[in-house]
Design a protein around this nucleic acid. Structure first.
Lengths: 112, 112
DNA sequence: ATAACTACCTTGTATTGCAAGATATTTATA
DNA sequence: TATAAATATCTTGCAATACAAGGTAGTTAT
């Protein structure tokens, strides 16, 4: 199935990071899957449904997110996810981790 | 076995990134496992043997790295890894991917 | 009725990081 | 000569995530 080293790296580098991005988005405003995917695409961060649904369920089970149903102007009802207080705490922690990772990579790239 | 959400996130965020860091280090000078681990630790990027050995073998099999044996002043001989021309090409590509990821996360954090 | 659209969700695979081991060489010491 | 310590190498099994490729169901227009 021909997958280049580069494609794989791109995928691997994003492990865990997608959750961080989604918590960030939902910390600003609640949203549902299709809309989340569109907004991530606008930021050049492609994510597909098969990634997003399990992620949202995991985050909900961990108490980081919650959701509510809402009628759609057209089509079936939408499941709007929003961040919880616990989610905001974890997000703040993730901010520190992300900053730390950027600093570490930078040190290594510059040769310490 | 008590593992916090934060510990997990830290681990996941680093998927793929460790390879990028090691290619960067080996692009500057050849090195062997214990030394690589020490230098990563100096940059606050903790990596253990069980992570590093499989990674180096994979990168060698992909043609990104090669190695040579060298006697040690004390103890068993060391396996010095160094980057190949192909490895440098992939590293250049990964630079772009990493920069792109930082930009994407930044956009999302700022609210697009 | 039926098709198109939108929304939901699941299953199986590939990949990686890590804990917890095992094995082998050299050197110092009892 | 044993034996312990230090320094290397490497493997196995598990947990976690991203993705491809599916499936189900409600709403609306033809």
């Amino acid at each position: 199935m021909e997958s280049s080293v580069q494609d794989n790296i791109r995928s691997q580098m994003r492990k865990g990071l997608v959750e961080y991005c989604i918590l960030n988005m939902l910390a600003r405003k609640e949203s549902y899957v299709s809309e989340i995917i569109e907004e991530l695409k606008d930021a050049d961060m492609i994510v597909v449904e098969g990634t997003l649904y399990p992620l949202l369920i995991r985050a909900k089970n961990q108490g980081l997110l919650s959701y509510r149903w809402q009628e759609s102007p057209q089509g079936p009802p939408r499941k709007y996810y929003f961040i919880t207080e616990e989610g905001r705490k974890v997000l703040a922690c993730m901010d520190g981790i992300w900053t730390g990772i950027i600093n570490s990579v930078d040190k290594i790239r510059r040769g310490e």
